[in-house]
Design a protein around this nucleic acid. Structure first.
Lengths: 206, 206
DNA sequence: AATAGATGTGAATCATGGTTCACTTCTTTA
DNA sequence: TAAAGAAGTGAACCATGATTCACATCTATT
């Protein structure tokens, strides 16, 4: 035996992996998953096509990692807003969570569209579902708590949570994929927030 | 000159076109747009691959017609529920529209999923947007009326309408694409209806 | 029946893009 | 520095599925 991967070697490996992932995310942010091809990724990273496969088993795996990388932070932010250190009423937390999601989606622009609404291959769609469920899970927990403490009216937390995800995706992100992105997205935040609040926190006026 | 297409000929032409479309819809209902390939369509219709192109310029055109065919009736039903012959309060009409959509989506099953949520090629997605907008347009008009007559609280009709579409798509149809279709969908109708009603028709309790 | 215009055929062609592989070029160890 | 194990290369290979095309067959006219 005469060769052992050493710390330095493994560091380079990791760095390359990282570099590829970074480039991949940047491609997706520019042209969506549609624009992410192995050869382009290789080209932009400055390596050969085949080399990519030394770092990722398949395109599906690559896409999964890209998705994870780009979405995890978002989910964390929404979770943090939903369950803050400082205790706060559910209503406030719901508002904050929706706002955070919206602001970050608008900031994300093309990338947000790619992650949430762009038509993608079934394999990538599978990844997307994981994160939709993550969002839904957070909302569900929050709504459940609100119902329990009687801050929110009786409702099905799972349905309401899924509905929230649908609202945010359709109202905020889907338009990015169309021509009508002319509208200033930030103008949508207020109305969406109100809509969600009505839907989840309002009781019928007597 | 010695040949003119005659009535009989044109009828056959139309019939064949129709037959292809019908088969295509049935394929989509079984296996989604993913399952719709030209060769399979030809096979199931009992003609040669190339012949399909005598009736449809391209797969994109075919998909567009399939989409149109399958969706138009749905949109009409929702429109009819939203703007019935008999005058009715907006609130009732909203409830009816949501219910109709939900019931039909559940009935449609796999087809509804294909039309609303299945990942598809960008060309098909384009078609989908048209019909999403059709739904949104109907809802928007209804909500606008409700706000004007003060049946609904002040809100942005366009945002609320898009939100409705998002809710219905995510809560009702998206699950069809996952394994969790085990749940009886019809149990969702009640909660969704309530959710939508709260979101659009409720006022804050004093 | 002869002819022109359609329609039907299905194997061959294209296009796209992921994946492989024989080979070269490092890295590390003895 | 020789040998072994990685990593890098990029052209070739494959898979999928839409599209074409040269040819055969059918339909309506004269």
């Amino acid at each position: 035996m005469s060769y052992r991967p050493t710390a330095k070697t493994r560091a380079r490996q990791k760095a390359q992996h990282e570099s590829l992932l970074k480039t991949a995310v940047s491609i997706v942010a520019r042209d969506g998953f549609h624009g992410l091809t192995i050869s382009r990724l290789a080209r932009e990273t400055g390596i050969a096509t085949g080399t990519v496969y030394k770092y990722f088993d398949s395109k599906a795996h690559l896409c999964a990692e890209v998705f994870k990388r780009a979405t995890e932070r978002e989910v964390d932010m929404v979770r943090a807003a939903s369950f803050p250190e400082q205790p706060a009423p559910c209503r406030q937390r719901l508002t904050d969570a929706v706002t955070i999601f919206a602001e970050r989606a608008i900031l994300g622009g093309r990338l947000a569209y790619a992650l949430i609404a762009e038509p993608v291959a079934p394999a990538v769609e599978q990844e997307r579902l994981i994160y939709r469920k993550a969002y839904a899970g957070i909302f569900e927990q929050l709504i459940e708590e609100g119902v329990k403490t009687d801050e929110f009216p009786s409702q099905s937390p799972s349905v309401s949570a899924a509905a929230l995800v649908g609202i945010l995706a359709e109202v905020l992100v889907a338009p990015l994929g169309r021509g009508d992105a002319a509208t200033d997205q930030s103008l949508l935040i207020g109305p969406i927030r109100k809509f969600c609040l009505r839907a989840i926190a309002f009781r019928e006026t007597a």
